[in-house]
Design a protein around this nucleic acid. Structure first.
Length: 232
DNA sequence: GCGACAG
DNA sequence: ATCTTGTCGC
């Protein structure tokens, strides 16, 4: 039987696994004990030959408005194992992300991932898959759309429009198109694992600093792409 | 058959 | 994702 930790699967096997795991993405609403929030992202080096996973752990609550203390961060590099295939991103990125998490001394209570949660053709985007593995609440924050339809959200920070898609149960609200900052393209927020869309939106807004992306994801992005030291 | 398509 | 300079705007 194909399991959660199998990564080297054929496309059809991977799709079958996603359909089966999607039912295990449970929803919960209480996150009272959050003290550490992690941000995860993957970058590539040497023309894509090397996969670079980065995790940044931030303290909650923030020290000031949108100002978070970095508690810990970790990077893991390994040979790239899979090409990018829309819909199968987790098989390319999650193994490296897990290895980066293994290097942490801290265990976060909430994880923010650069990519979709359930806003995925089979309702199991990279944020959901990672959440299942870590058994932690996760939120997917993507910069562009993978699937679903939506209207244009309002112009003010915090305005959002529902992201809907036709699934096996008819019309389903799978996420939100959020205006995280005035005058910029919106981000796509969706529940990853163990939380609702309303809760995902609340935390995403609460983690917003001065930029388009929430701090956890933004900092992980910088570390994964070496933008934190690449500048001269 | 013709598009669409996270990172 | 990544390859890449300058440039428009707050």
């Amino acid at each position: 039987m194909i399991e959660l930790h199998d990564w080297n699967l054929s496309p059809s096997e991977a799709i079958a696994l996603q359909k089966r795991l999607a039912g295990r993405v449970e929803h919960e609403d209480r996150l009272d004990t959050v003290r550490r929030i992690a941000g995860v992202d993957i970058g590539f080096e040497q023309g894509g030959e090397i996969t670079r996973a980065a995790v940044v752990v931030l303290a909650w609550p923030p020290a000031g408005e949108g100002v978070f203390e970095v508690v810990e961060q970790a990077v893991h590099r390994e040979p790239t194992r899979m090409p990018y295939v829309p819909g199968l991103l987790s098989f390319r990125e999650v193994p490296a992300a897990l290895a980066a998490f293994d290097r942490l001394a801290t265990r976060p209570q909430l994880v923010m991932v650069d990519g979709q949660g359930i806003a995925h053709p089979r309702r199991l985007g990279v944020a959901s898959h990672l959440g299942l593995w870590l058994d932690l609440p996760t939120i997917g924050v993507a910069k562009t759309r993978l699937c679903g339809r939506h209207g244009e959200p309002g112009a003010e920070r915090g305005d959002w429009a529902p992201l809907v898609d036709t699934g096996s149960d008819g019309e389903e609200t799978i996420g939100a198109v959020l205006r995280s900052r005035q005058g910029v393209k919106p981000v796509f927020v969706s529940p990853g694992h163990r939380l609702s869309l309303a809760t995902a939106l609340e935390w995403t807004l609460a983690c917003l600093g001065r930029t388009k992306l929430p701090e956890p994801t933004r900092l992980a992005d910088r570390l994964a792409s070496r933008r934190d030291q690449k500048r001269r």
